[in-house]
Design a protein around this nucleic acid. Sequence first.
DNA 1: TTTCTTATGACCAGCGATTGACATAGATGT
DNA 2: ACATCTATGTCAATCGCTGGTCATAAGAAA
Lengths: 325, 325
Amino acid sequence: MATLKDVARRSGLTVGTVSRVLNNRGYISEQTRQRVYDVMKELDYQPNEMARSLSKKRSNTIGVIVPHVVHPYFAKLIGSLEQAAYDRKYKILLFNSQGKDEKEEEYIEMCKSNRVAGVILCSDTFQTDKFRNLSFPLITIERFLDEGTAGIECDNYRGGVLAAEHLIAKGCTSLLHIGGIRNHRKPADERKEGFEDVCKREHIKYASVESSQFIYDEMDYYSSIDRMLDEYPGTDGVFASSDVIAAQVLQVCARRGLRVPEQMKVIGYDDVNVASLTTPDITTIRQPVKEMAETAIAMIDRVAGGEMVPSRSLFPVTLVERGST
Amino acid sequence: MATLKDVARRSGLTVGTVSRVLNNRGYISEQTRQRVYDVMKELDYQPNEMARSLSKKRSNTIGVIVPHVVHPYFAKLIGSLEQAAYDRKYKILLFNSQGKDEKEEEYIEMCKSNRVAGVILCSDTFQTDKFRNLSFPLITIERFLDEGTAGIECDNYRGGVLAAEHLIAKGCTSLLHIGGIRNHRKPADERKEGFEDVCKREHIKYASVESSQFIYDEMDYYSSIDRMLDEYPGTDGVFASSDVIAAQVLQVCARRGLRVPEQMKVIGYDDVNVASLTTPDITTIRQPVKEMAETAIAMIDRVAGGEMVPSRSLFPVTLVERGST
DNA sequence: TTTCTTATGACCAGCGATTGACATAGATGT
DNA sequence: ACATCTATGTCAATCGCTGGTCATAAGAAA
């Protein structure tokens, strides 16, 4: 592959000058600039990012660590992050921790090795010394971390409130909240709190359960849902903390002969594509994933530029009404 | 961050020796090796991959270019690729071309710049000179490319055959095949051929249509499905070329009051999670995505090691029977 | 004429590794 | 006692690019 030197030689300029063009440094005449670009095209020159990063002690790569890739919420998040990164000339190094703490630590090390511009850490909650003294910004999405540079969340409490109020407005009298993936601590707790506060206020019977025995990459909640419905008979409204869980609630209902939404109303969370692919489609609490992703990438970019960023950003959620309620 | 030099100094060895340990070169006593590892841990040393790659003229990064991230098929593929890459000490640089040719070309350039060990190109079909004279292996998945190093496909013809045979065995008399995303040319054609050959052989009424007006990231086939069912009344079996399409067929049927599987049978393709999240869940043709991903990564690794790899690998598909047929 | 600004050349250290050539020296084998 | 193997050191080039320091020179501005 052609190198800077080749471009310099071919264009009759020096390496220094060509580098100046490449990095918009110092004085360059329009004519020279054009000449350089022409030669670059002619030689099909691609700057060697390795050398560049080595020299600049920083790459334009962003590490994204997710606990799950197949789950539609993360798929959507990853897609949005990639788009936002692309817009700002960054590349995404994707890591799937599968929710394992050791893997997460290992990936952080890899990010260090690769001198990433920043890392975006999604969901789950786990603290380790490895997150300290990082030489790059660490942005968390829907996750609380003491050592992080900044945290991006959506208004989970309000999500719980919206869900409960909606179910109650639709006439439910006995509610059940099912937590699951991505809900190990804080974010889920807040959803639950919002949900429960409304139930208390409105004097509605309710219960909250967690399907903790979730298996990554499997997303199999059926048995726990079944058990829960047995445990709380008379439930006529379910608030699932993800659309995937909600979809499975729908299936369990179908098997039990419970008509949705007539006999049972179901509301999900996230608003990912599965929510609109089921029959009936699922009423859900929408997270502005795209905006959250853009914010995360923008933050890394800004921190890299020496700017300050808010340590916590809260995004609003909205209710999307569909056929399940 | 600590450098090799620091490790050398701290351990009382020379840079050369430490490098030997790192790369398993030459003679090293067990004692020295241990000493080096200890110091590395002590200093929290992480080899600078940039410097390494620059020196070795090759990185351990693999570029993955997909036309779509949110589509469950790709989400699954990406997840499998990441896992396989991790197992072999590679990292994934993720690029979403959104099916746009220009973006695909641009991403290939980026891969060049980053001196990736190889690129995995998924679905869609598009040829360009940019794919020629690459200094790294280019592996395609479910995609035909003249310039590629190797292609990995699943037996699409057989998939079509299995689908048609299954629907007919279940008593369908008038079939409809709906193509869509990821089906621009060859792979989809073969599914269609398999499907049609069986229909002809069995003297079953059939039709094949394509919902070409697909919008990336939207996955909205409803209107086209509606139109198709209007156009082919009497259809009692649908072979959709993806589970996402099948899920939407299910919804359209529900809206039309067509009971599945009693009045209408539906079979999908891929076997991604949505297939099991709908009610009823979807009978589908399963692609061995995980194995395909592993093969792709393994190939890059082998080509990097100077080995030869088959230019075409065909994987078998299987029928997974569920509630929609 | 003198001073500035613009535009480029000429050099070169440095980024953090790799790798090869060659030297040295103790241990082992025969 | 001599060859051989093992284990390290020494030294330096190289990978491709960045970015600083100077020097140079032409044209513009004062």
